[in-house]
Simulated assay, not measured.
Amino acid sequence: MEGNSSASYAGIGGVGSNIWPLTGPEVVSREKLKELRVRTNGPGLYNLAVHVLALAATASLIYFTSGNPWLQVPAMLLYGTVIVLMFAPLHECSHGTAFRSRWLNHVVGFAIGAITMRPFLYFKYRHAAHHTYTQHDERDPDIVPFPTSLREYFSMILGASFWPKLVGTLVRGSTGNYNEEERTFLPASVRGQVSLEIRLLVLLYVAIAAVSVYFASPIALIYWFFPRVIGEPVLRAIRMAEHTGADESPDLLANTRTTLVNPIIRQLYWNMPFHAEHHLASSVPFHALGKLHDHVEPHLKHVSKGYIQVHREILGEVLRLQREARRAA
């Protein structure tokens, strides 16, 4: 393993590392954990069916509003939101907890990875590093620095750094020329498999583009690419709420935020708003996170009532930092 000890990969099968010893999971007893971590296919298949139906319903809105941009653009945003929220089942499959069957986690994970342009195997190892080093300012590959200005805040929401990273992942993965950060969470033994998946995805995207050009068809743009792009800010806002403004410490009770949301978002985001609970016990399937929340809520430092409240607090702090910067100038 190049330049790192095996502790770098602890998140794939364990919690934390000797470099960043995570605390907090001790509030969940072994008996409770054993009760909640039981995996089954039913809830995942149900949630997947609901998500597919939501995709079909919102895609039909695009079709029926064709020719009226004042209606079609909002329809695309709604459809795109449902698409980007597929990040949740992709994420759950990467933990092997969306379904009991291992092959089902992989098949669904690969399929959603293709739709959302997130290579499944690459994400699996990157996300494992995020769990191992949650909120470590150097080793957490998904840490979101707190915005110090309105410009930085809206840049994050619009994905100014996300899209270059995504394109870079596809380019580097296709060539097998991974950067230094990626080599810390991608063991040498799996890089060939990760590159193979990425090359197949890139070939798929090139084929879709070629067919679209040959037949002069806008279908892929209207029902996939454009909605996928314009929906991303919704996911950026949700993902910012998960850790931004929380403690940059190894205390899982304080470095992750749970957000209490309405049943529709909770359904389409596969219970991931219970994010502190997920980090405390990532082996607990999504459908049991509500029960885990009831068990650990008194111990959690950051529990917010909705994403609007979270972003109101973030923006309030951003404005305060801007005022301080102006006074110091």
Rank of each mutant, 00 (worst) to 15 (best):
P218V: 06
P273L: 06
A57S: 11
Q135T: 10
Q193T: 03
A246V: 00
S66E: 14
R126M: 15
F120T: 04
P141Y: 06
A188M: 08
W70N: 02
M117Y: 15
A281M: 06
G96R: 10
P69E: 06
S60K: 01
F99A: 04
W224F: 08
R239T: 10
L90F: 04
E182V: 03
A237C: 06
G109F: 05
S8C: 11
T175W: 13
G316F: 01
L186G: 10
L48P: 14
V194S: 02
G24T: 07
P89N: 01
A210S: 09
R320Q: 13
A111T: 02
Y133A: 12
A288D: 01
P119Y: 02
P74I: 13
R118F: 15
L300R: 11
A129D: 06
S155F: 05
S149I: 05
G109R: 07
A254G: 13
V296H: 10
Y79I: 01
C93M: 12
L235V: 04
R239W: 11
P285S: 05
L319H: 07
Y205P: 00
L104V: 02
E297F: 02
A54S: 15
L104Q: 03
F225H: 01
Y223I: 01
V202G: 05
M1D: 02
Y9W: 12
A54D: 04
G231Q: 07
D142R: 11
A59F: 00
P187L: 03
E181C: 12
A276Q: 08
R102S: 10
S29Q: 08
L280T: 09
L319M: 08
V38S: 07
L78R: 03
V107I: 12
H136I: 10
S283G: 12
E2Y: 13
A241K: 14
Y122N: 09
F120G: 04
A325P: 14
L166C: 10
E26C: 03
T40R: 14
G24W: 03
N68G: 05
G16W: 01
V73P: 11
R191M: 00
P263F: 10
R257Y: 09
V211I: 13
R266H: 10
M240F: 13
I314F: 13
I314W: 06
K305W: 14
A59W: 08
L150N: 12
N18F: 09
P164E: 15
E92C: 00
D137K: 06
L33F: 00
K165A: 09
R102Y: 11
N255M: 14
R118E: 08
D294H: 09
E324K: 07
G3E: 15
H287S: 09
V52D: 09
